[in-house]
Design a protein around this nucleic acid. Structure first.
Ligand SMILES: NC(=O)c1ccc[n+]([C@@H]2O[C@H](COP(=O)([O-])OP(=O)(O)OC[C@H]3O[C@@H](n4cnc5c(N)ncnc54)[C@H](O)[C@@H]3O)[C@@H](O)[C@H]2O)c1
Ligand SMILES: NC(=O)c1ccc[n+]([C@@H]2O[C@H](COP(=O)([O-])OP(=O)(O)OC[C@H]3O[C@@H](n4cnc5c(N)ncnc54)[C@H](O)[C@@H]3O)[C@@H](O)[C@H]2O)c1
Lengths: 213, 213
DNA sequence: GGCATACTGTGAATGTATTCACAGCGTGAT
DNA sequence: ATCACGCTGTGAATACATTCACAGTATGCC
């Protein structure tokens, strides 16, 4: 079953909202309620849930707990898997701090940096290694996903090495497009591009716009 | 002339690459060269340039300098405009540091935080104000775009206030969807969602994937 | 000068995403 | 029991984005 990129993104948003509602004691939800919160149409919500194969009932809507379970099962069929972060600079440290404070099912299990100053230290509870240990740690922890927060001119080189070490997914914060083999998925978070885009659309009469990232 | 979201994004990437090439002395470029670097097809590049109304010549390709000028003119028809940042936390500080080191045509002209500790201080060369000065500063500098790096539970409230103060575009880093009037454009940079998406696609056989953000 | 080349510009085709619109149904009201 | 309601699930329609494919053409070469 193939789930399109856009749908995956929205389903992740639904899940986040559903968890909050579940914690607040809500048992059922209608497509238009979820839609309202996430800024999409009810039809889209129904189509998305159909895509992941979850079925509600016309009179009662969707069961919050059941839907969360279905999403978990669809998106995270395996055990919690660790991710790593390469480039413990300002941005990298902010990320480590942020993820340290979260009970995530995708914990950051290790960080890496060329700077020998940083090797061996704990940064917000996350062990920072020298680059020489990269292959070993990745293999030990069987990590498949990495954050890339190194300077732009080191990014390709580091990405190559990560891919060789078995990484299959990258969240790239460096302002360059990476060349990777087709089986590696890259998500680009390009802050400068986002800013320029917003500056452009802020000028014209933008549609409310949703789109995540 | 309406330029689609996706095209704007790619054009911004082309411009970044073109600036590097121009600095390196390259005078002309073919669609397939630009495409190769940015991970899109040559046909797409040509279509994008057609959309912004730039014309090359079959034998010589596109003129690097002319194309940059055309993109600038299309995307940034006005003078350099300042942007502001609200929420001088870990992420906000990283951004301020980053943009301070760049000669950007979208300079961060002011920052804001509720924390009285931060008010009045200079953070990486950027003046940090208390929230009470928000309306005044925005009006003075006629700022239309803002970064939102406050905690999730403050984001909606701050966004409302920014919109009331005249903001027309937001780059939102907080993990919630904002309710804003339709004339306000919001770009979501949701790091957790990106991570989860990558974790999902890293598992299946991902297509090389481009997509920015 | 004439010709072969390799590109661009673009209509048309294809592919993908979203929305419409409605049949069908379980529920709660009566 | 029966009915009316308001929801879901989904085929079909639409809208949007990408790619194909090729005519047209400026250039450099001989
Ligand atoms: N900070 C921001 O707000 C911001 C905004 C937009 C983009 N970015 C991008 O994010 C990336 C990181 O930004 P930053 O501000 O944290 O930079 P930074 O300079 O603070 O940190 C970069 C870190 O990477 C390390 N590093 C350098 N080369 C490395 C290598 N080959 N292997 C491993 N580690 C290496 C450095 O030692 C440093 O600790 C950059 O590509 C930057 O362009 C940052
Ligand atoms: N740090 C990360 O790597 C990371 C990753 C993903 C998402 N985020 C999101 O980015 C946002 C900022 O993250 P952070 O790590 O910088 O948090 P932080 O707690 O370090 O910083 C938040 C800042 O916002 C200020 N603030 C709080 N309420 C405010 C208000 N009403 N008006 C103005 N300022 C206010 C606080 O004083 C603080 O300085 C959060 O929404 C967080 O969820 C951060």
């Amino acid at each position: 079953m193939k789930i399109p990129d856009r749908t995956v993104e929205r389903v992740i948003l639904y899940r986040r909202r559903l968890r909050t509602l579940h914690a607040a004691g809500q048992v059922r939800i209608y497509s238009h309620e979820l839609a309202g919160v996430e800024g999409v149409t009810p039809a889209q919500v129904r189509r998305d849930l159909m895509t992941i194969g979850y079925t509600g009932s016309p009179a009662k809507g969707y069961e919050v707990a059941g839907l969360i379970a279905k999403i978990d099962e669809t998106l995270n069929p395996h055990q919690d898997e660790g991710v790593v972060l390469v480039g413990v600079g300002r941005l990298g440290k902010a990320f480590l701090a942020y993820f340290a404070g979260q009970a995530n099912h995708l914990p950051v299990v290790a960080a890496f940096d060329v700077d020998p100053e940083k090797a061996g230290r704990l940064v917000h509870g996350c062990r920072c290694h020298g680059l020489d240990e990269l292959e070993t740690v990745l293999a030990e922890r069987s990590v498949r996903v990495a954050f890339l927060t190194v300077p732009g001119d080191a990014a390709q080189e580091v990405a190559d090495r990560l891919v060789r070490a078995g990484i299959r997914g990258l969240v790239n914060l460096a302002p360059i497009r990476l060349r990777v083999p087709p089986e590696v998925y890259v998500e680009y978070l390009d802050i400068t591009v986002s800013l320029e885009k917003v500056a452009f659309f802020a000028r014209r009469d933008a549609r409310a716009a949703a789109r995540s990232s």
